[in-house]
């Protein structure tokens, strides 16, 4: 059975597309799926860093498209997960080095041998976005609980519909439970009401994401991280499992919960 091409996109930059791509890929691979990540952010590549594979890049996406190497040669195998691969973006070129047609052809080839092809889309709504969306079977829109990110997500969802790639699903990233509780941040319900699409998962704000990204070790592989658990749950949902949304904070002891009930705060 040919694999699934999943494009991860957002409109706005800095909401966590690359982190989400790396972690969903790692979580899928650790469940035995054959996964290849494709960094479509030509000229601003990052996915190799987050996966800790930068120093092993020899060939990149543009080399493949322009015929300077075979597809296999540009694929970097992850050092921890033997069935996880990365095709890095070129750093010295720009988005016009690749066309949507190239991306479709490339993904059709990858689809034959892999269960999942995850495409890390660049920010924006121009050529880079269209490159990333052209081969997609499924689209995941990443947003943060901030009005500007949600507005851009709405725009991108409309464009995905216009390209007949919908319906997209939503990943709400960096939700801060404490701020939501105080009423100072949009919660998942607010965002879903604004965007009116299906939710694939909510990832809580978690310092361990930053630490692990800097180390090049996806947080999804960290058994103790709550964000890691959220990404593992998202991977399970992609595989068709019915996994309930996890509670956003450690429920703490009974006393603490009672304290909260009586408005004492903690």
């Amino acid at each position: 059975m040919p694999g699934t091409v999943l494009t991860i996109t957002s409109g706005k930059g800095g909401v966590g597309k690359t982190t989400a791509t790396a972690n969903i890929a790692a979580a899928l691979a650790s469940r035995g799926e054959k996964v290849v990540c494709l960094d479509a952010d030509i000229g601003l590549r990052n996915l190799d860093l987050v996966l800790g594979l930068e120093n092993r890049i020899v060939y990149d996406l543009v080399d493949v498209v322009e015929g300077r190497c075979r597809l296999r040669q540009a694929m970097i195998r992850d050092k921890r997960l033997p069935n996880l691969f990365l095709i890095p973006a070129a750093q010295t070129r720009d988005k016009t080095a690749v066309s949507p047609t190239d991306m479709v052809q490339l993904c059709n080839e990858l689809r034959q041998d892999y269960d999942w092809v995850l495409i890390d889309s660049p920010a924006g709504i121009e050529r880079g976005f269209r490159n990333a969306i052209a081969p997609a079977d499924q689209v995941l829109v990443v947003t943060n609980p901030e009005v500007s990110a949600v507005r851009d997500a709405d725009r991108i969802i409309g464009l995905i519909e216009a390209e007949e790639k919908g319906p997209a699903r939503l990943l709400l990233n960096r939700l801060n439970p404490a701020l939501v509780r105080e009423g100072n941040m949009l919660d998942a319900e607010d965002v879903l009401e604004l965007l009116a699409i299906d939710l694939l998962g909510v990832v809580p704000e978690d310092e361990s994401v930053v630490v692990s990204a800097n180390r090049g070790t996806p947080v999804a592989l960290d058994a103790n991280s709550r964000a890691g658990l959220a990404f593992r749950n998202i991977a399970r949902r992609l595989l068709g499992e019915d996994v309930p949304l996890m509670p956003l904070e450690d429920s703490g002891g009974l006393l603490q919960r009672l304290g909260r009930l009586f408005g004492k705060g903690d």
Binding site: R151, D152, D154, R155, I157, G158, L159, E161, L194, A196
Partner: peptide
């Protein structure tokens, strides 16, 4: 349909939308 951010409908007559019109 739902009109999302960035979509624009312009028409010389009346416009009837069945669906939500999002900010933007």
């Amino acid at each position: 349909r739902t009109l999302r951010s960035g979509m624009r409908i312009a028409f010389p007559g009346h416009v009837v939308v069945i669906g939500n019109v999002h900010p933007g």
